[in-house]
Design a binder for these strands. Structure first.
Lengths: 209, 209
DNA sequence: CTCTGTGAACATCTTCACAGCT
DNA sequence: AGCTGTGAAGATGTTCACAGAG
């Protein structure tokens, strides 16, 4: 398959939300224009995004809400359950452990790890925090696929490598650190401080529009 | 000034981190190639990014670490203190309240709000959580400029409007909800579930590279 | 007549390549 | 010689506009 732009995948994920909302509202079909209105893009953009994966619409009518939802879930890999571990049981790790948005989408937290003795043994959202050293050893039992990395920036790189050894193939990094991804491991960043800086840039330079 | 791409601003923010790291390591000057290496781009990209704002390098030598840091802080609006309120004192709001990365960059938390009686009156990181209803009334005293919105998706839109009435001009939204920004208010999103979906897309479609 | 699917036009962002300081 | 600053070329992403299906 041709390479798909990240911006397209991001919008697909948004479309899925709108589709689920539409389903709750009892709609059976939805047009590219409707989807665009909900998401702040254009109908052409919606159609182009979907066209990369096939043609699932009906001319003159629009898209079947349920069929398109199913197809997008399939494209994004949401038809299966993902086994996720949280590395770092500080405030952010703890918040992630109970975040509803993950469970709702089939991401199942199977383990939580930390280094601090004070945190090890504590139960977070029904899961006992274990020592980071156990990560590799636990791998055979837990079969983790994705890690949410919520540790101090200085520890991030080491833990990425440990996660890779535990067989983890995808990492969502919350630490404000640039990390080198081992081969075969996909790393994405959620960088709150950076987003806030982009926001203050926008506020500081607000009369350019 | 010409319009600057968001990707450029994002990289600027990264360059600043590398510059601060270089400063700690005692470096006085740094070349575009060095900066590129740390950030995973190219030297041409670094020079182009900086060129939008002027020319601060010395040919044959590179950039002064301290001068460039200062200039980027200025561009991003980090030379001043920003007054920030957190709306939503659940797990995520609480984690944001104590997040070091914000304080380090001059973002000062001046208030925390929630609706739940159980949370109102509690102290988080030295700040007492107040009723959301007080937001507008507190505005004259607190002069908030930025809000971190960490509430359930259904409540997000209402609170954006309340924040706008309190004089807030920038909102960093953590709720997985598409929100309509009132005029003059800049809204950015940190959407963890969405990032995780982009990750699972990448893992599901991993043999395309 | 409505709404999709898609090449072609356009706009934006990145990389190249080199002139010009130091 | 080393490294910046920048037009020009190239790549990538978005919008237009219309043929064609229902």
């Amino acid at each position: 398959m041709k390479h798909i732009a990240e911006s397209t995948v991001r919008r697909l994920s948004l479309y899925l939300r709108f589709l689920e909302q539409s389903r709750r509202e009892g709609k059976d079909t939805i047009s590219s224009g409707d989807l665009a209105g909900l998401g702040g893009t254009t109908s052409a953009q919606v159609r182009k995004d979907l066209s990369f994966f096939g043609s699932f619409g009906t001319r003159g009518l629009g898209y079947s809400v349920s069929a398109l939802s199913r197809r997008i879930r399939e494209i994004l890999g949401l038809e299966r359950e993902w086994r996720v571990v949280i590395i770092g049981a500080g405030k952010i790790g703890a918040a992630l452990a109970q975040y509803r948005g993950f469970a709702d989408r089939g991401y199942r937290i199977v383990g939580i790890y930390d280094v601090a003795p004070a945190r090890i043994g504590v139960s977070l959202d029904g899961i006992t925090v274990r020592d980071q050293k156990e990560l590799e050893g636990d791998a055979a039992r837990l079969k983790p696929e994705i890690a949410l990395l919520a540790v101090p920036p200085t520890a991030a790189q080491t833990l990425v490598e440990r996660a890779a050894k535990a067989g983890i193939r995808g990492i969502l990094n919350f630490a404000p650190a640039q990390i080198h991804a081992p081969a075969g491991v996909e790393v994405r960043h959620v960088d709150m401080a950076l987003e806030l800086e982009i926001l203050s840039y926008a506020l500081t330079n607000a009369r350019k529009k």
